[in-house]
């Protein structure tokens, strides 16, 4: 599942350790998510790829092109491990999630005139916040880091080309992309999670991986 090029930012051993840590982190996330949102979540084995940031929009586009429309929840996280989490939901996910989480209409009120759209936004934001928190949080925890998050931003039901061209990524040379796809067993919801970190985090990551594996040597 590991693919590394771009002048070997991580050694192959570091790559394998990171992959194993991701497997563990995401396994725990899925289990805890089931408890928090009361539904079984399937998280695929995360796929790690290192690339230039400029290639990123194209890469993401390539993965979501089967979706006509998408919704995106985006959140920055920062600890010593820092970056940007992008959660891409397939079209219609918002409505499925509303049904799944059984949001009562009384829970939310708003100035705006369209309660369904507001509810959809709110639900995507909530689930996005939890999914990102679960994946990033568990990963950071295994690497003995503590991260905090910015409030999630959300783009609802856009054509994927529009939604992605608006994204602007830090042109800081390299991105580690951790991609996982997820689905909920109850309900027709699926999507991808991309974690994009930059050069700042790589030095720390290499050190954290070394400390992690030292326990086993």
């Amino acid at each position: 599942m590991m693919e590394i090029h771009e002048n070997q930012i991580l050694t192959s051993e570091e790559g394998e350790i990171l992959q194993e840590i991701m497997n563990i982190a995401f396994g725990k996330s899925a289990a805890d998510l089931a408890d928090v949102i009361d539904t079984h979540v399937v998280l695929s084995i995360p796929f790690i790829k290192i690339m230039q940031v400029t290639e990123l929009p194209m890469y993401i586009r390539e993965h979501v092109k089967d979706y006509k429309k998408i919704s995106i929840v985006e959140q920055n996280f920062w600890g010593r491990f820092k970056g940007d989490a992008l959660l891409v939901f397939s079209s219609g996910s918002g409505k499925e999630l509303i049904a799944m989480l059984q949001h009562g209409p009384g829970e939310i009120s708003s100035f705006e005139s369209d309660p369904i759209d507001i509810l959809e936004r709110e639900t995507l934001m909530e689930v996005g916040n939890i999914l990102i928190g679960a994946c990033v949080g568990k990963l950071a925890e295994l690497l003995k880091d503590v991260v905090t998050y910015t409030p999630p931003m959300v783009v609802v039901e856009r054509y994927y080309t529009d939604a992605l061209s608006e994204r602007q990524f830090d042109v800081d040379k390299t991105a580690i992309v951790l991609k996982t796809d997820f689905s909920f067993t109850e309900g027709n919801v699926s999507g991808f999670l991309f974690l994009v970190t930059n050069n700042d985090s790589i030095k720390w990551l290499k050190e954290a991986l070394r400390i992690f594996i030292e326990q086993y040597e």
Binding site: E20, N23, I24, A25, F26, G27, K28, A30, A31, H40
Partner: peptide, 25 residues
């Protein structure tokens, strides 16, 4: 020995005849 610690995975392997389940890490 698995990272998937959801109850469903655990009961499935025990039904298949596994002796026990240990969690990663």
């Amino acid at each position: 020995v698995t990272a998937d610690v959801q109850m469903k995975a655990i009961t499935t392997v025990l039904d298949l005849g596994a002796y026990m389940v240990l969690r990663k890490p």
